[in-house]
Design a protein around this nucleic acid. Structure first.
Lengths: 144, 144
DNA sequence: AACACCATGTGGGCGATCTGCAACCCCAAA
DNA sequence: TTTGGGGTTGCAGATCGCCCACATGGTGTT
């Protein structure tokens, strides 16, 4: 779940030795953002589809199981609510929508994400300095 | 291990609902950077001390177990080498130093970290847009 | 008609991995 | 005996991805 970037190829990642191609904990803000951007309530299935086009993925869909699990966990924490729909035709489905708490959580996430980027940028600069090279320009990041 | 930032307080993190206060996979580049910045080989213990002052931590030391495990794993992958020192006085200790492969891996990490920040920034902007607010300025990030 | 297959939609179960904590080894100086 | 340096194992808990089951309906194929 949650493949980030895909710098060159997976083989390259392996050569780089367990680079870690996932930044797992960002499932929540991704889902929260998708829900916040939608006017209506969304089914988990649809969230999976849309998540594929979020910055976190290179167009490939995340594991649906993980999305459903995150949604349930977020509901337990009051960030989303869901209601079952049982149409005459078709299977039962669940529609999720953000709560005010969820919107508030996303607002916090925005600050936290900024902290993440700041921290990672700092690490990057230290790494470049340690190698005695100038901080290189942002490379082409594969995906989407 | 690997606490990032610490935006306000842990309570706040909980309020934000399982924010995920770790960005785990960044142990490797942190250790690689510390080794690259050092002229001599370093003991795992020293690496733990120095890691506390890396951007990834707010001055608090990471779990030593994880550092040793990462070091051993990196050695298996050829990124570092180690030699046991068995002084007449004192316990046996192991000194780690970077290999050329390790330096190469760090170079790749520098690109990958840039991808991470780009991806997270993008997500942040989408989140702000979804909430209908202007992308707020970078908040104060606690730590160090 | 029976079959396969795909798309929508949700979820359980299992194994692999990660990770932090506690505990334990060594040794030496205060 | 406590503190600090130095290193390791073992275990419990969480996470995560993959496979598969359950539903339903449409389309295409022998």
């Amino acid at each position: 779940m949650w493949a980030i970037c895909n710098p060159k190829a997976d083989d390259d990642l392996k050569a780089c030795a367990a680079l870690g191609k996932t930044l797992s904990r960002l499932s929540q803000p991704t889902i929260l953002t998708i829900l916040a951007a939608s006017e209506e309530a969304l089914h988990g299935y649809v969230i999976v589809q849309r998540a594929a086009f979020s910055p976190m993925f290179g167009g490939s869909k995340p594991d649906a199981t993980g999305v459903y699990r995150t949604l349930r966990q977020m509901e337990e924490n009051g960030l989303v609510t869901s209601q079952w729909e049982t149409p005459q035709a078709g299977p039962a489905k669940r529609a999720f929508s953000l709560t005010d708490e969820g919107r508030e959580a996303l607002r916090r996430w925005i600050d936290l994400l900024a902290c993440y980027t700041a921290t990672i940028s700092e690490l990057r600069e230290e790494a470049a300095a340690a190698l005695g090279i100038a901080t290189p320009p942002t490379p082409v990041c594969g995906g989407h």
